[in-house]
Design a protein around this nucleic acid. Structure first.
Lengths: 132, 132
DNA sequence: GTAGGTGTATTATTATATTAATACACCAAT
DNA sequence: ATTGGTGTATTAATATAATAATACACCTAC
């Protein structure tokens, strides 16, 4: 049942990126790619923990964060479900703003590396992690 | 001399944001606003440390990071100078399209890593000379 | 209510990041 | 070479974040 869903996720313990954050990103990614759809149930905390060889609380931490962000819905005693995704419409918006940016950058003869650098600089400049 | 430059910076020790990072951001901001210009010398580590009531090494850490990023130039025995700014001169149009994109992405709760990934995906997907 | 599944609050442990103390290296001018 | 300025490598102390252990609470089906 859920075992094939487990294959969506793969953790890199020695990457320096916290496990719970890798999981958060991968779940979001899976939802964005429609590998996980609205109403679908995620693998249980214990299943995931066992399959990925980490502590259940680490999984739970990721789930909790995703519930706070409105990505998942917590059903106690049942499991975590994928929430309604407002993203589809916003995704178009995101895509169009990205294309707009890349086209502008290309018109100025910026290389891909330069574009990446600029994005990274702005991300760190405009503070990360916490809202500002 | 440099004392008025010191007034550019103000730290919030209880904000949760690391001191050295606050300083990094504020120095970059000052450069972007032309309050600090190319070749200009920053207040010394000890001056800043004393004025801002923090350890000199904390200031030095910020300086080192900015040197790595190419924002400042280290002159040993002399001081830190503002480097030539290549990135500040990107066009307003490019900047605004980038900000637009990042804001949209952040509204979707995308992490910095995810944003970078998406940009890279689009760059290779829509790369100039290549098919696919 | 019991059994067997779900997630989690609390606490402790461990790892990492941040800050600070100290002693040192570099440079320019004398 | 000495003085007085610059930044920093190394180390230690501290604060914060991430992970894990345990015991618990919730829900459904029986």
């Amino acid at each position: 049942m859920t075992s094939n869903l487990i294959n969506l996720f793969s953790l890199n313990v020695s990457s320096g990126i916290p496990i719970y954050r890798q999981l958060i990103d991968q779940i979001k990614q899976a939802i964005r790619m429609n590998l996980l759809n609205e109403g679908e149930q995620l693998p249980s905390v214990r299943n995931l923990a066992s399959a990925l060889q980490v502590n259940p609380m680490t999984i739970s931490k990721a789930f909790t964060q995703l519930e706070i962000e409105g990505v998942l819905i917590r059903k106690r005693g049942v499991g975590m479900l994928v929430a309604e995704q407002q993203n589809t419409s916003i995704s178009k918006q995101l895509e169009s703003s990205l294309i707009q940016f890349i086209q502008t950058a290309r018109k100025q003869n910026l290389s891909d590396d330069e574009i990446n650098t600029i994005v990274q600089q702005y991300l760190s400049l405009h503070s990360k992690g916490k809202s500002q």
